[in-house]
Design a protein around this nucleic acid. Structure first.
Lengths: 343, 343
DNA sequence: GGCTGGCACTCGAATGTCCAGAGTGCCAGA
DNA sequence: TCTGGCACTCTGGACATTCGAGTGCCAGCC
């Protein structure tokens, strides 16, 4: 038993070394190069045997007979799960994060800067989702009469986000009635969570005169729509130029990736598939979307306080520096969370 | 004299044929192929002589000795200026435009749909600038007290766009004072052009009590900032996956292009360099930005009514179907203008 | 039993050579 | 001024060859 365990340890070390070397050199790594660059304490022949086993188990793969080995998705998975720690960021990197984000002036700016920062730090494609509304609270609802039968509804959240909706009323609305409605909306919804609002306001129409109720109902349904529908819609991208850093598998993989990145729906699924609080890594075929089968996604939730209000992450080749990327993603998410909490 | 004129005409016809063939086949075009595919009425030897002249003049270029000819930037320029008409769109294309844009629900949606549509029609990278605020008018200014010393300023334009700004006040502000300020702001700025607003409101602080003036000044300066600063900021991109349709000059040109496209500033300059009402075409080196030296930009202004409120266009390889692209860009711009005017 | 050195083998990448084809330039003649 | 013809140039693909990295396996050693 003890012997076999020992063996496994070395095989794992070999796998780790293969992943590290391959990520560094971008070329298949052979047994000889491996013993030279890592002090594994055994000869290349032994490594070859280990590699044969690792290949049988599906952790590595040989592009052609006379080539070195390359990690498979399964190999990367094992590496990420068991063979590496998230490595701490350098001081320079930490400083870059704070420097960059501290100068943000509003929510849009925070998101824009975050996406740039992530792209720069990881040198990959960065994806940042706008803070979701579902867990936000209503700070203020404003109604502005644009014409007798048109109202602009403006919803301001505690994260500083603003949503506007045009409401076409079934009948003319007086300014007094509008002011009344505005007051009651804010009284009922102000400071409340989005999820609670529909319940709290559902009886509101009945407190108005019968002839005003159609208008109230219309406004309310628009408000509820705004609360629910826009919930997790927007996503911002950055660093797509980093895709060109892989002259290898170039035209083959880059086109579907670019296509995928233009589909908001795909991006949202990419980020949103799990509620796990930690950093999530999806490697190659683990991604549901076909076009991203040769890329990995590293993502994590962020938010003010304990709660996750949205996600952010990066998309890169499966051959990426997982420890570094995970560290960067996590650090950025934490800092963005702090900024949101402070503002 | 008459004879030489005749000659020039044929040379131009040759140039036109070269451009058309090259755009179609993506391969250098030789004299023989040329006489086969166009009835120029002369032999290939004659064409060869004409081509030699065209090359001397810098309109076409030979990649290597035993290859056909390829148009130069100068050649494309002549083609665009004198050798082609904007060709009408097909019925299917027109229908696609109306179908696609008629379902837009708000300004964001119009822009998003426009960029997709353009990318799809031209199969190139589309760029759409948000309607500029400078020529817009103020529909409403709203002030919302978030805390005693914090105000959310919301600016609603006649194009349906909403801008919000957080104002930190030097001193607490009462609700009555806020209502007063709101009323006067709207009285002074409502319905006015952005450019006029600062002049119209500059004396406003003096009509308030001395102790309130600092607040008024702060709010005003934030408002003016919102009017000016955000003016032409946002640009939306689409169809970047189309970049991968050129396996030729691939990794060389695509990287700087992607980089350029991420820089809002570059994009804005790209679109904004001229106020000419017609379709603008910038070919290759005519683009100020170095990374786009092997691409062409076709852009045009759009707006509700007569006025240009923003620009849109596409970025593609210099080897593009200029007549078709120009037609598509122009048609989309017109239709977007109509939609904006109607809403 | 596991590790090691050695050896034969495989296969891809790089290099060199060759040839066909496309395209040109030029010239003499109509 | 145009045309047909001819010699010349150059690229790209096909093919053969070589080189070397890397492997698998085996017999022997600790």
């Amino acid at each position: 038993m003890r012997e076999e365990r020992q063996l496994d340890d070395r095989k794992l070390a070999v796998l780790r070394a293969i992943v590290q070397d391959y990520v560094g050199t971008e070329e298949p790594v052979g047994s000889k190069a491996l013993v030279e660059r890592h002090n594994l304490g055994v000869s290349s022949a032994t490594i070859r045997n280990d590699m044969a086993v690792l290949e049988d188990e599906g952790f590595i793969h040989q592009p052609h007979t006379s080539a070195g080995r390359v990690p498979t998705d399964k190999g990367y998975r094992l590496f990420v799960d068991r063979l590496t720690e998230v490595k701490p960021l350098s001081v320079a990197e930490r400083r870059a994060i704070t420097n960059f984000l501290d100068h943000a002036v509003d929510l849009d700016d925070v998101v824009t800067r975050t996406v740039r920062l992530l792209a720069q730090l990881t040198r990959q494609v960065a994806v940042v989702q706008y803070p979701s509304l579902t867990r936000s609270t209503v700070r203020h609802v404003e109604l502005v009469a644009l014409s007798p039968t048109r109202i602009m509804l403006v919803l301001i959240t505690d994260t500083g986000r603003v949503e506007q909706r045009l409401v076409d009323c079934p009948q003319p609305v007086g300014e007094a009635m509008l002011a009344d409605l505005r007051t009651r909306l804010n009284a009922g919804a102000g400071g409340r969570r989005f999820a609670e609002v529909p319940r709290l306001l559902q009886d509101l129409p009945e407190s108005f005169l019968p002839q005003d109720r159609p208008v109230v109902t219309t406004v309310l349904s628009t408000l509820f729509e705004a609360l629910v529908e826009q919930t997790e819609e927007r996503v911002v991208l950055g660093g797509t130029a980093n895709l060109t850093r892989f002259p290898h598998d170039f035209p083959l993989t880059i086109a579907p990736v670019l296509e995928a990145l233009e589909e908001q729906v795909v991006l949202l699924r990419l980020l949103g598939e799990t509620a796990d609080p930690g950093v999530m890594v999806r490697i190659g075929h683990e991604n549901a979307y076909e076009g991203l089968n040769s890329t990995s996604v590293v993502s994590v939730g962020y938010g003010s306080g304990d709660e996750t209000v949205a996600k952010l992450g990066v998309v890169g080749p499966t051959r990426m520096d997982y420890p570094g990327t995970m560290a960067a993603v996590r650090a950025v998410a934490r800092y963005v969370g702090q900024i949101l909490a402070a503002s």
